[in-house]
Amino acid sequence: MTAASTEQEQAPVTPAVPRRGGSRYGALLRYLGVRLLLIIPTAWILVTVVFFLMRVVGDPISAALGGRLPPDQIAARKHAAGFDRPILTQYWEYISGLARGDFGRSQDNVAISHVIASYGAATLELVVWALIVAFAVGIPLGRVAAKRRDKASDVGLRLFAILAYAAPVFFVGLLLKLVFAVKLGWLPVAGRASTNVELALQNVSPKTNILIIDAILYGDDGYILDVLKHAVLPAITLGLLTAGIFLRLVRINLIQTLRSDFVDAARARGLSDRVVTGRHAFRNAMIPIVTVVGMQIAMMLGGAILTEITFEWKGLGYQLAQYLQARDFVAVQGIVAFLALIVAVVSFLVDVVVALIDPRVRF
């Protein structure tokens, strides 16, 4: 046996180590796959709760038309709609319809999917404007409060955050309307745009039903300004609700991050407080903000109902209030089920973003 062969036999065998990037990428895909599959039971639970809660008041036909039609006509309508069948049969048809994208039909025989397509863009636009306000107000003020901890400005900002979160949405909206629309006349009282602007934007092609985009496509600066002016008060009303939460979260997490060892190490290297706060502490303090965005969007969808009623912003919340007033519980059930599905999807998207930006997340 040669020396070379002896050395070869005695040499330790190093196992192949998978590349870190590839293993993390595969683990990330598995994690996201599991989270995606979890949407199904989450959405199922949500729409099931909606279905049975709506049945607490009885069948939708009797709840909507009881006392306004003779009993024989109500019985005929119940039979035509299938509400005289066993509850489990109705439930199965309801779930099957949702799987096909069928959210039911209103009393005037309009498909709820058509209502969602027609008015959902308005609610989406309002929520986006409100999120912009929440980020623009809550995050900078949270940084100021953290840097001036326990000083008068910090106490004032914390009080503002509590009031912003606790104040009823409709009260804030009415107060803003009274001051900036009625008294000062700076902004419109209600609506998504002036009547002539809405009529003109109906002819935009391709029409998105998001008025700011339609106004940009139309190419008229006056129309763009009109849409923006109508969006200011509703966006502030709904955005302040979340701005208070963002302010407190940024303040608390930034204070805790500034006490971390890596921040002390950065200061020991001679970095200025501005660099330490901006490049190191603030970026890490923002991660918890992302994790609560999904919950805040769910809260905003609830607040959008009152905001849309207050400002006659004709979105899904406004339509939902109209259906509630008319006791059209099939339409109410369809819209609420759709909003529940949106919340489930948004929660998944937030999990994706957190997994991508937070290295502490383990797959």
Rank of each mutant, 00 (worst) to 15 (best):
R105L: 08
V110F: 13
V128D: 03
A130P: 06
E125F: 03
G97H: 10
I116Y: 02
S113R: 09
V110A: 12
S106V: 09
L98E: 10
A122M: 03
S113M: 07
N109V: 08
G97K: 15
F135E: 01
E93D: 15
A99K: 07
S118L: 10
L126R: 06
L131Q: 05
V128K: 00
L124Y: 02
L126W: 01
Q107N: 13
V128Q: 01
F103R: 14
A99Q: 09
D102Q: 14
A122C: 02
S106Y: 14
L131T: 01
A117I: 00
I95A: 09
V115L: 11
F103N: 14
A111C: 08
A122W: 02
L131R: 00
R105H: 11
V127L: 06
D102A: 09
A111M: 11
D102E: 12
A111W: 11
V133P: 00
Q107Y: 12
S118N: 08
V127C: 02
E93R: 15
L98C: 10
D108I: 05
G101L: 10
V110D: 13
A130T: 00
A99Y: 08
S118W: 03
I95R: 14
E93G: 14
V127K: 00
L126E: 03
Y94C: 11
A130I: 00
A111H: 14
F135R: 00
T123V: 04
Q107E: 15
V110Q: 15
R100H: 15
Y94N: 12
R100N: 12
S96M: 12
L124G: 04
V128L: 04
V127N: 04
G104K: 10
A121R: 08
T123Q: 04
G97Q: 10
I132D: 05
A99R: 07
V110L: 12
R105C: 11
W129N: 06
S106H: 14
A99N: 08
W129A: 06
H114F: 08
V110K: 15
S106I: 10
I112F: 09
V128R: 00
G101F: 13
S96I: 10
A117H: 03
I112C: 09
A122S: 07
L98P: 13
R105D: 15
I112K: 09
L98W: 12
V110P: 07
A130Q: 02
L124I: 09
E93S: 15
A111S: 14
Y119V: 02
L124V: 08
A130E: 02
W129Y: 08
A111I: 03
R105T: 15
G101T: 09
V133Q: 05
G120N: 06
Q107D: 13
W129F: 08
A136Y: 01
A134W: 00
V115K: 06
Q107R: 15
L98I: 15
G120I: 01
F103H: 13
H114M: 08
E125I: 07
I95Y: 13
L124E: 03
I95T: 09
A117N: 06
V127R: 00
A99S: 12
Y119L: 04
G104R: 10
L124A: 06
S96F: 12
G101H: 11
A111T: 08
G101I: 09
V133K: 05
A121D: 04
S106Q: 10
G104V: 05
F135A: 01
V127E: 02
S118H: 07
S113W: 03
E93A: 14
G104I: 04
E93C: 08
D108L: 10
R100S: 13
A130H: 02
Y119A: 03
L131D: 03
T123C: 01
V127S: 02
L131Y: 02
